[in-house]
Amino acid sequence: MTSDNQPGAKARIAPAGLAFLAITSLGWGFNWPITKYLVGYLPPLTLRGTTGVIGSILLAIIALLWGQTLRVPLALWPRLVLAAILNVGCWMVLMGFALLYLPASEATVVAYTMPVWASLLAWPILGERPNLLRVLSLLMAFAGLTAILGSHGFAASFSKLPGILMALGGALGFALGTVLAKKWPLHLPPVSAAAWQIGVGCFPISIVGFFVDKSNFAGLSGGGWLLFGYSTVGQFCIAYVAWFAALARLPASVAAIGTMAVPVIGVITSAVALHEPLGIGQIAALLFTLAGVALATQS
C-alpha cells in the first residue's frame, strides 16, 4: 500500500477527516465574534493564554477519564515542543499582537494565507505535489476569502507593516506546523496530544500576559463568562482536538485549505451576532470560498 506522503501517490480523503475538519471550522469560526467581544475586557495574551491553559487542563482530565496516558516518551519531547510552538504558541502570540496594528478583518486576510504556504511547503517536505484541481480550489477559496474582506478597504501602510508581518509570521508558523505534524507525527492518544500541545504552547503566553497585560475579569458579565467558557471549551477542548484528528486523516494541504471555511463562518456569525454588514456581494464571495473548499476535498 502506498503512503499518503509518498511522492506521486494519490492522497486519500477520509470521510471521518472531513467530519473532524467541519467541527474544527465551526468551532474556530464561531470563536471570531466571541474573541472580538472578549478582547474588550481581556488583552490578547491574557485571553489566549488563560483559555488555553484551562483548556489543556480540562483535556488532560478528559484523557485520564478515557483511559488515555499522558506520558510522553523522552524521544518525542522535541517534536512535541516544536508542534506546540508552531501550531499553538506562534499563532496565538503573533496574531494577538497583529491585532494591535490591524483591524480584525485585515488580520484575518493575512492569517488565512496559511493554506497557500501549507500547500507550498507540503510539496518539498511531504512530496504532496499539487495537482491542477487542488491549485484551482486553492485559488477559488483564496479569491473568495479576499473578496469577503476586501470591502473593508485593505490598505498596506507603513503603520500597519508590523501587524502584517506578524500575521504573516503566524500564518507561516501554523502552515509549517501543519506540514511537520504529518512528517513527524507524535503517536500519542489524540486527547492527550491536544492537551500537551495546547498546554505547552499557551502556558508561557499566560505567564507573560499576567505580567504585561491589564485585564478586567471583573468587568465580564454573566454572558461574558459564558463566552469565555466557549472560548475555552469550544475553541480548545473541541475544535483543536478535532483539528489534530482531521490532520491525522487528511493530506496536510487539504486540511489547510479546509480551514479557509473558518473566516467564512466567522463573517456570517459576526453579521448575525454583531450586526456587521453582509450584502449580496459578501454572500456570493462566501459561496465562492465554500465551493473552493469543497473542490479541494475532491482532489
Rank of each mutant, 00 (worst) to 15 (best):
F211G: 13
A14Y: 06
G258D: 13
A245V: 03
A248V: 06
V110P: 01
R48K: 11
Y41V: 05
Y240H: 09
S119P: 15
L180P: 05
W243P: 00
L42N: 08
T46Q: 03
R12A: 12
G223S: 09
A143P: 05
M1R: 15
K182H: 07
V109A: 06
I205R: 12
W184K: 07
A107M: 14
I61Q: 14
H275I: 13
G201C: 10
A156W: 15
A285E: 01
A156S: 13
L287Q: 06
L139D: 02
G67D: 10
L188H: 04
A181C: 00
A242E: 05
I265C: 04
A271D: 08
C202N: 05
V293K: 00
F288L: 11
S56F: 06
N5H: 14
A155L: 12
L70P: 14
G201N: 00
R129K: 15
A11G: 14
G223P: 05
I207V: 11
L74M: 15
I198E: 07
F203M: 11
F203Q: 12
L287K: 11
T297Y: 02
L120Y: 15
L102R: 04
N5I: 14
P103C: 15
A271T: 13
P185R: 13
G201T: 03
H275F: 11
K160N: 13
P162V: 15
G223N: 11
S25R: 05
L286P: 00
A239H: 01
G127Q: 11
I61R: 15
G209W: 01
L42K: 01
A284T: 14
T108Y: 04
L26G: 08
L186D: 00
G127T: 12
A156P: 00
V179W: 07
K182T: 06
P204N: 08
C237N: 10
A83N: 05
P251K: 08
G209T: 05
S221D: 01
V110W: 01
